[in-house]
Nucleic acid binder design. Structure first.
Lengths: 200, 200, 200, 200
DNA sequence: CGATAATCGAGACGGTACGTCGAGTCTTTAG
DNA sequence: CTAAAGACTCGACGTACCGTCTCGATTATCG
């Protein structure tokens, strides 16, 4: 998504090279503005002003507000949610759910939420969004469940894919749509009443 | 949400009365524009032009673009999803999930999706949104489950609330976030692998 | 006007010396762009691109767009208008007026015209402009009239300074302001009805 | 030059009519900004800000900075220079020259001067400019000379058209190009050495 | 020779203004 | 008082230039 100069093609990159530190400053500013006013009210002018950058410097790197925001989030999602490994499926799921809830509650999560409304009309965004926010989530869950299966904690006929989807769906549903928090009480109830029963 | 004149004060409403047909024309225009270009790109001017109305006529009725869209959707959600009653929980759930999927795939659904991103920054919108889209959904699900419980189809210790939430979460997660369809095959798998087991 | 390195201080100029050929290329490009789009629409980027030069190469030589244009014109005015010497005041004036009209109609003349608007707000420009375009003009006219006086063609009480000014004024007035051409017919009329009578 | 709604065609002008007071406010702001920073440095934003108007309100009335400035000047030129009538050609010419010099020295004159550079590249501007600044000037001069002829002050073979042109040319040449003032001393010299001799 | 220094083209940089567009409000005529 | 029409202020859009800067690469002088 983030545009890159074609410099792999061998030829020397002529002219002054892009200042990589501006990328970071701009992403930082984007995240700050987004956290303060949301996606809709985020303006390129505000981002540029906060990063002490010209607008052209933004448009040189990202084609639109959407791309800027997506890229800003992508940069964060991977490093923000630690992969849990407590030794048990229940523990891992518990930690994952709480950890991801934290992430979604923070600025990146709000940014992600703002993008949801654009998905139907922007196929490229949809792809990028799913790659960043959903694939990572599902991957962690899958690995958690697979480790549990290897340890024999899980019924070999358990519908792992379905449990994976239910867990992810519940996370985003609560945090993005209903606005109800994902706290320890709810996580325990979710495990007790739904996920663990389906795994046994 | 829909603003009303202060006519409770007794006096007869002097002057030309509001043309009620304009409400419908405007909502219709709103829905059409929304379906064509999405929420972001919907402009008040476009709605006014399509309804052959002045912008003031819109603002006399709704305070903002957001309210206009919410109200337009509200009007539709209630009449759009028929409450199923097949005689069995499995059948009802099946029909409900497919019916709601249809609704969310249509213009109103896309409108609803567009609003998700605004929820964190607009508390009033959040309330209205949840009242319209989530409460209706949960209500139908609750009634389906209750009827099943009355008919003795459901284990008396089954976590009905949790099943309700899982069903709703899966619906919106698929349709709004992952973009995967909710077709008969998936509904059957969802029932088979998750919902029905949890009810027994 | 044209900036020069401080090399009078004795020591040899270290580093790579300036490429004198770039001066000409840049002036040439400036004149071309100016002739095509005028002064207002002339951009430094366009000049640099046309001369296949970097912008810094321009700014190393001239401090601003204005200086660049002035210098470009200065270079031309002196070599562009040949000093007439037909043997008679009438003949010299005739040739001078037609010759200067040609010059002012060409690219340099248009450039000069473009600078007129800047004169009130840019004192340095005003000085340079007058030195290049007006002084040269007046000098030629003065020498023409002086030669005529020496030859006894002119009444010794004739107001030479005033005739000089009238001739110059008519030239620029017609060419820059009214847009009417200075052709042979007009020159003859001007001589017949105004200049020659005042000289006798 | 100043765009006008087609309302002569009879039909009632629907919608909110243009606020005529904005025209004046904008012209006033234009003149102020122009007087302060000149034509080149005059920006639409500055004019809009000073008039507390939106930029769209400007562009609804004038297509460009140039048109705005021209129209602003036009409004002034006619009312700014009083037509002299002292009873003698010499007196009238004297007053006219001094009066027009005052006008050209003021903000409108500087604006006019700024436009000179654009004339070669903008034919419409050239026409408008000449209509406003030159035609008015020539008309006054012509009437002055005609009245003198009627009074018998002028040789019946005097080249009135040429004198007219010389007077106008000298005015603008001095004020716009050489920057020398047109004061009483110069006016008297001009009359004595050139204009009056040509009229007798 | 190598080190130093100013040049070159190229183009990114922070800014400012551009001319357009949309929001929400206001002001007209008509009913 | 409502209707359609459209002008109003405000502010963001994405682009274009400004004049400065930073690259790699070139070309001169100096030690």
């Amino acid at each position: 998504m983030h545009s890159s100069r074609a410099k792999e093609a061998g030829g020397a990159p002529r002219g002054r090279p892009r200042d990589a530190s501006r990328d970071d400053a701009l992403r930082k500013a984007t995240l700050e503005v987004m956290a303060e006013v949301g996606y809709r009210a985020l303006t390129m002018d505000a981002v540029a002003a906060r990063a002490k950058a010209g607008k052209a410097t933004i448009y040189r790197r990202w084609e639109s507000k959407l791309e800027l925001v997506i890229d800003t989030c992508n940069e964060l999602v991977s490093r923000s949610v630690p992969e849990p490994d407590t030794g048990s499926v229940a523990g891992d799921l518990r930690e994952f759910l709480l950890g991801y809830a934290d992430f979604l509650t923070g600025p990146s999560g709000k940014a992600a939420q703002a993008l949801v409304g654009e998905l139907p009309h922007e196929p490229e965004l949809a792809t990028a969004f799913r790659d960043s926010f959903l694939t990572g989530q599902r991957g962690m869950l899958r690995r958690i469940l697979e480790r549990g299966a290897e340890r024999g904690e899980i019924n070999r006929h358990a519908p792992l894919g379905m449990v994976n989807e239910l867990a992810g769906a519940t996370l985003t549903y609560r945090l993005m749509l209903t606005g109800e928090p994902i706290d320890e009480a709810f996580v325990d109830k979710l495990l007790e009443q739904a996920l663990l029963p389906l795994l046994n």
